[in-house]
Every structure is written in C-alpha cells, then in structure tokens.
C-alpha cells in the first residue's frame, strides 16, 4: 500500500478519519490506476491556491477596499486587472501540467539500507513545454523543466528496507509555474518496482569452511595471477578480466583467461545453514555470493525451490542474487495494486 504522509496533528483524529482516509485512498486508486505510461489528463489534475495565492487574494481585497473608499477608478481598474490575472493564472498553471507524460523507465536493484534508483522520463506532449515541474516522493524530489518537444530523464532514489519487491509510493507531480499563486498537482501510481536483494551478513566463520566444497584452505588464494592467455570476449565475462589495453589499441574485445584451480568451485547451499531463520540464511548466502564473486571463483546456488548451476561473472551473480531476493516471495506480492 502506498505510504501517505499524514501531518502529526491529524493523528489525534486518526480513529475518526481513518475510514474516510481509506475510502479516499480507494477512490484515488480507482481514479488514478497504476500504469507504466501516465499522461496527465484533465481528470487527473487538481488545482488549489498556494499560501502565496491566498496572500495575493488578501492583498487584492485591501486594494479593493482602498479603491472603494477613495472612489478611485484607476485603483478599481488595477485591482480588477490583477484579480483577472489570477483567473488567467488558473488556466496557465493547469495548462502547464496538462498532458505531461510520465514514463516509468526503469528501476535498479539495491541492497536494504541503500537507495534504489528509479528512472523516470518526462515527455512533453505540448508545443510550449512544461516548466518548473516538481516530482515528489516522500524522500526524494526533482525540480525540472521539460522543454518543448523534448524528453527529460529524471533519476530518483528511494531508500529500500526489506528483501523482495519494492513498489514506490504514489508519485506526486506538482507545479506552481508560472506565478506561484496556484499549485496544480496530480498523483501517479507508476507501475514499476525495484528488486531488493537480501542484506549481506557475514556468516559464522565455521560455516564458510563448511560451506566451501572440497579442497578447503585454498579459499584465500586469488588465482588471478595465473595468466593463461586471451580468448574473444563472451557475454557474461567479468569486466575486470577484459583486456582494456588491447581494446584501446582498437583490437577486438578480449578476455584474459586465468588458471582457476579446481578447488575454487563452490556451492552455496541452503542446507548448509540449518541454524538461522530464513532471512539470516539468505543474508549469509548473499554475503558468500558477493565474496566468491569478488575473488573470481566459481559458485552455484542450491535453494529448496531453485538451483543455479555453477558459474561466474556479473550476470551469474545477478541471477544468484535475484533468486535469493525472490526466495519465498510471490512475483506479484502487492495484489492490491
């Protein structure tokens, strides 16, 4: 469920307002369904004066009183002109956000405690562009202009806490442009999610030796020094082993082949950790996966539900981490969406 910030003062009345809040949230969800590409149409936009707007209206009232009391036609004229400017500003502020398109481009994975990167794209569908657009998430915001006919990519970072899928809360898209007297805004429940890996935790030292396969004792050897030769780059090779110097000489991309001792083949096995609970076990396995990957060793994963064959390289690591992250997590956990 999307988190909605409530001012502290309303907590007192929370029991009273809660049903209404729930109903309001339900109504918002119905009115603004989640989607990958959201164009801010008329019915999605809300508009209301800002504090500066109310201050401006107060100033207009004082000016009107001056006009009445001094019977001054030019004072009337200026007051009416500015009042009608306010009306025109309603249109301009509304028109500034109208048909702005927000595209959920991508979400990057992260470990708990980190911030996951969400990439959004703002696309102007009007000739005049959109100015001073503010994208607001509770802990992240951006303030950008979308020039006419251009796309703007915005990266927002949201802190993630627990393993599994992280669905960002409802995004607020707001703008007070051009006069700052009115605020036009919309909510967008973007259909995007980031995968949160397990938190890497150092396993009990005994387990490391237990967990490693036969030939323990070689675990700390790097093996990187035993250079055998080059072969053509293949997808999934570690970037650290790419021969960048050769590539810089405009030779084809090649990978250094290193002599890996047999003893560095490992299995990350769920069954090796009988003592911890599920999250702990996953955290330990995660740590081990990162550990082996850093040392360039070959490892595989055995979970009760899934087995990943032994391998190496970033894509392998990603597959392992993903399997760990999704262990016991349904693909569509937030059915509410």
């Amino acid at each position: 469920m999307a988190a909605v910030k409530t001012p502290a003062g309303t907590l007192l009345f929370a029991p009273l307002t809660a049903p209404f809040q729930r109903r309001y949230q339900r109504w918002l969800r119905r009115r603004l369904p989640p989607a990958r590409v959201i164009t801010l149409e008329q019915r999605r936009l809300f508009i209301f004066p800002t504090r500066a707007g109310f201050f401006f209206m107060l100033a207009l009232l004082v000016m009107l009183l001056a006009a009445i009391n001094y019977q001054n036609n030019m004072a009337y004229g200026l007051t009416f002109w500015l009042a009608m400017l306010f009306v025109v500003a309603v249109h301009f502020t509304h028109g500034n956000l109208l048909r702005l398109t927000v595209v959920a481009v991508s979400a990057r994975s992260a470990f708990p405690g980190q911030r996951a990167e969400f990439r959004l794209q703002l696309r102007g569908t009007q000739r005049r562009g959109h100015c001073g657009v503010r994208l607001l998430w509770p802990e992240s915001e951006a303030f950008v202009d979308v020039p006419p006919g251009a796309d703007v990519t915005v990266n927002l970072f949201l802190p993630v806490t627990s393993r599994g899928w992280f669905v960002p809360p409802r995004l607020t898209i707001a703008s007070v442009y051009p006069l700052g007297l009115l605020r036009c805004w919309s909510y967008a429940q973007l259909d995007m999610r980031a995968l949160v890996w397990p938190k890497p935790l150092t396993p009990p030292s005994a387990v490391i030796t237990d967990a490693s396969s036969s030939g323990a004792g070689d675990a700390n050897q790097s093996g990187n020094d035993d250079f055998l030769g080059f072969r053509d780059y293949r997808e999934g090779d570690s970037l650290r082993r790419v021969d960048w110097r050769g590539w810089a000489r405009e030779q084809p991309l090649q990978t250094r082949v290193l002599a890996s001792p047999q003893s560095t083949h490992h299995w990350l096995d769920w069954a090796h950790f009988p003592q911890g609970d599920t999250e702990q076990r996953l955290s330990w396995l995660c740590w081990l996966a990162l550990h082996y990957d850093a040392q360039g060793q070959v490892y595989g994963l055995r979970l009760p539900t899934v087995t990943i064959e032994q391998g190496t390289g970033p894509r392998h690591l990603e597959a392992v981490l993903t399997a760990l992250a999704l262990y016991g997590v349904s693909d569509r956990p937030r059915g509410a969406l």
């Binding site: 990958r36 590409v37 481009v105 991508s106 979400a107 990057r108 994975s109 259909d191 995007m192 995968l195």
Partner: peptide, 15 residues
Amino acid sequence: AALYQTPAQFNSGSV
C-alpha cells in the same frame, strides 16, 4: 518502456 506496459524492472549489470 513505452512498448511494454508491464512493470519496469530491469536489473542492472553493474552489481
């Protein structure tokens, strides 16, 4: 992203 109307979740390669 515009072609797929599915959740945007691409794991990055830069682990």
